[in-house]
């Protein structure tokens, strides 16, 4: 647990320091992608198979996330879009991008400034639950919110 916490801190620190800088040396220990974890400050939202529509549960979670972001105006958020492993990697990468964008657009409609948000898709490549069953797939079809 402690190691995991340290890793989270390191990754968040890396994200915070690395965003604006696009010519970065890659050294041992560096990571250029997020880690698969559940949201802490902001809750993940889930999607149906091959869908990037927001259902009522997702909308209410996004409303709570928007409230938190309004209460913490100095914080920025990167919205990660993810897909389950079914279907091919390229299509899922675009599906993840659309999921992230759906969440971002809804947060914007709730009054969160565009400048505080960015999106990235990891497609099916960073599953939260590595198992190969319906329960895992449902968890893995998600938008995740990295606060920094």
């Amino acid at each position: 647990m402690r190691i995991r916490k340290i890793m989270v801190v390191l990754v968040v620190a890396a994200l915070a320091s690395g965003c604006a800088c696009r010519t970065k040396k890659v050294g041992p220990g560096d990571s250029n992608i997020g880690i698969a974890e559940e949201g802490k400050e902001l809750k993940d939202i889930n999607f149906a198979f091959d869908s990037y529509q927001l259902d009522s549960v997702a909308r209410s979670l996004l409303q709570k996330n928007a409230e938190w972001l309004k209460a913490n105006p100095s914080r920025r958020v990167q919205v990660e879009g993810h897909a389950d492993e079914r279907g091919t990697n390229e299509y899922n990468m675009v599906l993840g991008a659309n999921r992230a964008r759906s969440a971002q657009d809804y947060l914007r409609s709730l009054g969160i400034e565009s400048g505080r948000m960015s999106t990235v898709s990891y497609g099916e490549e960073l599953p939260l639950d590595p198992r190969h069953n319906e329960e895992a797939w449902a968890k893995n079809r998600r938008a995740h919110f990295n606060v920094n």
Partner: peptide
């Protein structure tokens, strides 16, 4: 590659 991210497609 040793890109320490996703190198795909």
């Amino acid at each position: 590659t040793n890109d320490r991210g996703l190198a795909i497609s």
